Simulated assay, not measured.
Amino acid sequence: MNAAVAPPVPEELDAFRRDRTYLGADHHRNERRIWIVTGICVVTLAAQLVGGALFKSVALTAGGLHMSAHVAALLTAAAAYAFARRHAADPRFSFGVGKVGYLAGFANAVVLAITALAIATESVERLIHPEAVRYDGALPLAAAGLAVNLLCIVVLRPARRKGHTHDRDGDLNISAAHLHLSADAMVSVLTIAAMALGAALHWDWTDPAAGLAGAILVGRFAWNLARRASATLLDVNPSSALTEEVRARLQVDGAEVVDLHVWRLGPGHHAAVAVVAGLHVDVARLRQALAVIPELSHVTIEVATPGATHQP
């Protein structure tokens, strides 16, 4: 009796990460840094609120309330890292959870935009109805806030990517938190300069003028961050150079790429779905040609008969 012959196992079309884990290379390190900075801001927030209550200082209380915006933004970023780490292998997410950080980045962009609007509204109000500024109490507070921001900026500084890469955004989650604090630091510098000038020349309008300039700066940061995050969330082609490199590597031995889609899955991870037409297409060879692209983590190749109409 002849032994039953097992049916051939169809070659998988998917490559290259079978675990569907598309987290950034520095995910765990960035999560730790976010929690460290969150702790620094929470301690500063508590000190300012307690100091404001003990010394009856409105300026300290206002500084604490402002710091609460930083804490909220950092907690959003930290929650995104924790969620992505815990659900990295969850099969419910077809293409992993690498985009959670971009969602947090978009949320932080919204917070920045609201902050810019609030600063602009208050600044315009103060320009129309000037009020005397207590420079003796405000200047030390602004300087202390700037010092805390600079410390946090150093801790959150995004790591430099080595070698050639098509992923210019990297880990947008930590970049968003870093940008949030950087924007506030720039506003603090403008504020300190304006208050120093106002104190020297007795000009009350310099403080709200600096606030308005800072609001414009923060608003621009918010727009750029929202644009970058939404591009990933909406699967905008992340890199025309990467797309053309994938196309060039697939068009060998007479094969023709009739349809190609490239999108970002997470920090440093991209996916490509391609339809290739040709008489003698070697899928294994095509996969091998694409495997040299480090940012390409998921590939699906469909082979079509030459002349056939493909419906994307």
Rank of each mutant, 00 (worst) to 15 (best):
A89Y: 09
A62N: 13
L65C: 07
M67V: 15
A53K: 03
A46W: 06
S94Q: 14
A88P: 01
A73G: 11
G51N: 05
A53G: 02
T76A: 13
V42F: 07
G96H: 04
T61P: 02
R92Q: 10
L54N: 04
L74F: 15
L75S: 11
L65T: 00
L45P: 01
S57N: 09
A47Q: 08
A82M: 05
T61H: 05
R86I: 01
A73K: 06
L49G: 01
L75A: 13
K56F: 09
S68N: 07
A89P: 00
D90F: 10
A69T: 14
F93K: 04
T61R: 09
A79K: 04
T44Q: 08
G63Y: 07
L54Q: 10
D90I: 12
R86E: 01
T61L: 12
Q48L: 14
Y81V: 03
R86L: 09
L60F: 12
V42S: 02
F95W: 11
H87F: 09
A73Q: 06
H70P: 00
R85I: 03
L49C: 05
R92E: 05
V58L: 12
A80R: 03
R86K: 13
T44P: 00
A78L: 12
R92H: 13
V42M: 11
V43C: 09
H66D: 14
F83K: 00
R92S: 07
V58P: 00
D90Y: 10
A84Y: 04
G96N: 04
Y81W: 08
A73Y: 05
F95K: 09
A78N: 02
V58N: 07
A69W: 06
S68C: 12
H70E: 11
H70K: 09
V50I: 15
F55P: 00
F55G: 00
A78V: 03
A47I: 15
V42P: 00
A89G: 01
S68V: 11
A78M: 08
F55L: 14
L60Y: 06
A88Q: 13
S68Q: 10
L65N: 01
L74Q: 12
S57Y: 02
F95T: 08
T44M: 02
G63D: 15
L54V: 15
L54C: 12
A78W: 03
G64Y: 01
S94M: 11
G64L: 04
H66C: 06
G64R: 01
F95I: 03
L45Q: 10
A88L: 07
H66P: 00
F55R: 11
V43L: 14
F83P: 00
S57M: 06
H66I: 10
K56W: 09
F93L: 09
V42N: 00
A72Y: 10
L54R: 12
A69Q: 08
R86D: 01
A59R: 04
Y81H: 12
V42D: 00
L65G: 01
D90T: 11
L49F: 03
H70N: 13
R85M: 08
S94K: 15
L75D: 03
T44F: 14
D90N: 15
A84Q: 05
G64V: 05
L60A: 08
R86F: 02
A77V: 13
V71I: 14
L54P: 02
S57L: 05
A62I: 14
V50E: 03
R92D: 07
H87L: 08
G96V: 06
K56T: 03
T44K: 01
V42C: 07
F55K: 05
G63E: 09
F55W: 15
H66G: 12
